[in-house]
């Protein structure tokens, strides 16, 4: 993996060796394992994978929002401030809860949550929530209302809908309000966990393009999604997660045209635009993962070698027998 180098054009966020375990009465859930990932300003990194593979746990770990039965190891360095006298990077995994709540969540890191309906305070209108957030982040009493309208328009919310209470909003409208709230402090890092669930396609595209514009304006964006088409639309690079690990991380174009990990290839084949064929078999239980490659039971390239956990040796996939696309072409008989 790349070394962690938080210099000027280095990553804004550098996650190294992130591991999350949940203790259950009779088992341990391996939710995230030895995960390495970094996001630069102006870069949009997507994390994709089947439901339950650990994507949301990754996001929650970065925000210190994991439940009490979780154990976290590794580091997640966030660059804060700029210039020569900037403070040393903050390790999100080692931060005290107070510091996370005051300095990080909402301020340095904006979270667009998965189920916004539950994340919104039910007793205030969208406008009050938004204005309060803007006021807390440096907007004046005079300019906050205009800024609120502008943000609402940005996320595709009718300004009139801002005067409703969260329970009066449809799932899609609540999602857009949550997005506006996350964008309000103009955080340098945006974490979007399934930001398009419950939206119809035009709104999905609208939300994705909005994230892309924030990114082009200099924000670093980590987009967590089960929606491959969404990742393809806006991401610079895509990390494919399987059974708690990233198994391939590649530039978007390369991943979609020439996946190297057999799981990435199988997942892409499930798209209705492609073979519409499910990945054979079922994901393993995260309480009972094999010692070697967790995909082996479903993989048609598996050999004895796969009993050992594959590393990201040379290529971009953690696999003992990655698909080699150039070779596939070379093997076509003359």
């Amino acid at each position: 993996m790349t070394s962690i180098d938080l210099d000027h054009d280095g990553p804004l966020l550098a996650v190294a060796g992130l591991t999350v375990r949940f203790r259950l009465p009779d088992a341990v859930v391996h939710a995230v394992t030895d995960l390495h990932l970094s996001v630069r300003p102006g870069e949009l990194v997507a994390v994709v994978g089947e439901s339950g593979c650990g994507k949301s746990v990754l996001a929650h770990a970065l925000l210190g929002l994991l439940p009490r039965n979780a154990t976290v190891t590794g580091s997640a360095l966030l660059r804060t401030g700029a210039g020569i006298r900037r403070p040393p990077p903050l390790d999100l995994l080692a931060c005290a809860p107070r510091q996370l709540a005051r300095q990080v969540r909402g301020r340095a890191v904006g979270l667009v949550p998965q189920s916004p309906a539950t994340a919104l305070t039910p007793v205030r209108t969208g406008r009050r929530l938004l204005v309060e957030t803007l006021r807390a982040h440096g907007h004046t009493r005079a300019d906050a209302p205009t800024a609120a309208d502008r943000l609402a328009a940005d996320v595709g919310l009718n300004p009139a809908d801002l005067d409703r209470y969260p329970h009066e909003l449809s799932g899609g409208m609540a999602q857009r309000l949550a997005t506006a709230l996350a964008l309000a402090p103009d955080p340098p890092l945006l974490l979007a966990d399934e930001p398009t669930t419950g939206l119809d396609r035009p709104l999905v595209d609208h939300t994705l393009d909005l994230l892309r514009r924030r990114c082009d304006a200099g924000a670093a964006v980590l987009l967590i999604t089960h929606d491959l088409v969404a990742a393809q639309r806006v991401a610079d690079t895509v990390a494919v997660m399987y059974a708690s690990r990233i198994v391939e991380h590649a530039p978007t174009e390369a991943l979609f045209s020439a996946p190297e990990h057999p799981y990435s290839a199988a997942l892409l084949d499930a798209l209705p635009q492609r073979a519409f064929r499910p990945v054979p078999g079922h994901p393993p239980m995260l309480t009972d993962l094999p010692a070697g490659c967790a995909f082996a039971a479903r993989c048609d390239r598996a050999t004895e070698a796969c009993r050992v956990q594959p590393a990201f040796a040379a290529g971009r996939a953690a696999c003992h027998h990655p698909l080699e696309h150039s070779q596939v072409h070379a093997e076509v008989p003359a």
């Binding site: 089947e50 491959l228 209705p272 519409f276």
Partner: peptide, 14 residues
């Protein structure tokens, strides 16, 4: 299948 990943979606359809 709107909130399902591609593999689960294809499986439900199958």
């Amino acid at each position: 299948t709107a909130m399902l990943d591609a593999s689960t979606q294809a499986h439900v359809a199958a």
